[in-house]
Amino acid sequence: MHGGPASPGWLLVALCAATGAYCLLRMRSPVEEQRRAAGGEALMGFGMAAMAVPAAVFTPPSWAWPVYAGVFGAAALRALWGARRTPHHLHHLLGTAAMVYMALAMAASPAHHHHEHGNSGVPLVTGALLLYFAGYVLLSGIRLMPVTGAVGGGVGGAIGGRGSVGWGDRPELARACRLSMGIGMVAMLLTL
């Protein structure tokens, strides 16, 4: 995450920070479940942005990685608690667990020494996480494709005169937000 070229790193920082900012705006939704999900996604977006800052600009102190692991460990426990009522929290659980895994991997290996012990190939956990998030990105991308023959109710998704849906409550924007974070997670896992 901190050892690659600067340009792709900055693109990843921008993608994750913009996603986190949009998720903060989604927290203003009148729907409680949407606010709760948006809060967790904002934490993920900003956490991913912070982890993706190129090392040439800023190398975090050694104590930062255990702090990341602790913050995302707490978020994973919260997602685990929420998974008992909503299956979508399982995805949040895997995302926060992946963040804990990456933080611990960065804490365990100093910069530029990721493969110093002759460890060739992709570790099993990294590979499993890559497969999951690559599949998630593909499925999320398919879900964003427009459905032909769908009847829309105008700008904002108002159907049958029920009023317009605020831009922060539009499901396709929330899906695009999750897709962006999935892409960011794949990029971060590839550089691990």
Rank of each mutant, 00 (worst) to 15 (best):
S62H: 11
G40I: 01
E32T: 09
A55R: 15
E41I: 02
L77T: 12
G47D: 05
G45R: 08
M44S: 11
L104F: 07
P110M: 07
V100Q: 00
L24E: 02
H88S: 11
E32H: 08
G39F: 07
G40C: 02
L24K: 00
A79C: 15
M27P: 03
V57D: 15
P54N: 10
H89R: 03
Q34M: 03
H92M: 01
F72M: 00
M44R: 02
A79E: 08
E41H: 11
H91R: 11
Y101H: 15
H92G: 09
A42C: 04
S29W: 07
G70T: 13
S62P: 12
R84L: 14
W65K: 07
T96K: 03
H92L: 11
L104Y: 07
M51E: 08
A103S: 12
L90N: 02
P110H: 09
G39H: 03
G39S: 06
S29Y: 04
S109N: 09
A79G: 03
A50I: 06
A74T: 02
R35Q: 01
W63E: 12
L43F: 00
L93D: 09
R26D: 05
H92R: 03
P110C: 04
R78Q: 08
F58S: 14
H92W: 03
G45E: 06
E33Y: 04
R36S: 02
H89F: 12
M106H: 08
W81N: 05
L25C: 13
S29C: 00
Y68N: 08
L93H: 06
